[in-house]
């Protein structure tokens, strides 16, 4: 065996395991189970950090520079970068590696691009399972970068130990900061691009808006491109993470089970749509020839008593 094969063996095994869990079934369950057993046996505990925020706020750049800082402190760091699959073709363009330097000789880094593949949410179904595998492979810090639009915040809040919301330098007023939504799930709000005009004003507005609520998130001003404030950010992430305790793996399994249930439901909805069964039933309901009651059990196999 050439030396390089050994060199890449661990990363290759992890990469293939993630591909396995992207295809639901017995092999996927088996792989996740083995990973959980490994982490328990070896006392492995990763900190999973969700990074979300609007497109263009700088999530990828921030993940890359956080990874650099954590790696130079000796931590093993993985990035899982989620990008959307096309609803039309099922294909995806995964471009996050453009912003992440490759470190081919460093076994302490791992980057994987994940397409959402039919997930109605902007967090791929497989994300929770992937974090379980990456933790078992011995990575201490897992940065999960979401698509940054739609309902990602719900999924990432379930999965991550610490949720980071990234804002650009011109992200609205303090009333927006008080609205329900993405900022509600934030443990840490990061105003990125501190070198740009407007960043300080955004920071001040967010501080005013966020301070009004109980359990306000931490607020930091950073620049990913200038690598300013990143060490402080990592310290804050660790502080929030340590307050959370060691429930992380249980939370990841919960998030995986919810994602699996959603995948199952979404597949049934797609099938009922594609086969025409949904339209047929809707037509019958409108015409009065079939009842609304029982439709969910007929179409999607829900049990009768949950069927409104």
């Amino acid at each position: 065996m050439p030396a390089d094969v050994k060199h890449f063996a661990a990363r290759r095994e992890l990469a293939q395991a993630i591909s396995t869990v992207e295809r639901p079934g017995a092999a996927a369950n088996q792989r996740i189970q083995v990973a959980l057993a490994t982490s328990a046996a070896e006392s492995r505990h990763a900190l999973v950090v969700g990074i979300t925020g609007a497109p263009g706020a700088g999530k990828s750049s921030l993940a890359a520079v956080l990874a650099d800082v954590a790696r130079s402190a000796g931590r093993r760091v993985a990035i899982l970068a989620i990008d959307p699959s096309s609803h039309e073709s099922g294909g995806a363009l995964l471009g996050d590696r453009v912003r992440i330097d490759e470190h081919p000789d460093d076994e302490g880094r791992f980057t994987r691009s994940i397409a959402t593949r039919g997930s109605g949410h902007s967090l791929a179904y497989v994300t929770a399972a992937a974090t379980i595998l990456v933790e078992a492979a011995g990575f201490d810090l897992i940065l999960v970068e979401t698509v940054g639009a739609g309902q990602a915040e719900i999924g990432i809040a379930r999965l991550a130990d610490v949720v980071l919301v990234v804002e650009g330098p011109e992200s609205g007023d303090e009333v927006q900061a008080m609205k329900a939504g993405i900022l509600e799930v934030a443990d840490i709000v990061v105003v990125n691009k501190s070198d740009r005009p407007g960043a300080q004003a955004t920071f001040d507005r967010l501080r005013t808006g966020l301070a009004l609520g109980a359990g306000a998130p931490e607020l930091l001003l950073v620049s990913a491109s200038a690598s300013a404030g990143i060490t402080e950010l990592l310290t804050t992430i660790d502080e929030v993470g340590s307050r959370r305790g060691i429930r992380g793996r249980i939370r990841r399994v919960e998030a995986h089970l919810i994602a699996a249930a959603e995948a199952h439901m979404d597949a049934q909805v797609r099938e009922a749509t594609a086969s025409g069964a949904l339209t047929t039933r809707a037509e019958q309901i409108v015409a009065g020839s079939a009842p609304l009651a029982g439709a969910l059990s007929d179409l999607f196999g829900f049990s009768e008593d949950s069927d409104a």
Binding site: S89, A92, L94, R97
Partner: peptide
């Protein structure tokens, strides 16, 4: 992408080692 492939784009000026490493990690 429009033909249904998952495409990982790595950007400009990559070394051979970086391409191999990315190919392995992305499976």
């Amino acid at each position: 992408r429009d033909e249904g492939f998952e495409v990982i784009y790595t950007g400009l000026r990559r070394t051979v080692d970086a391409i191999v490493s990315a190919a392995v990690e992305e499976d």
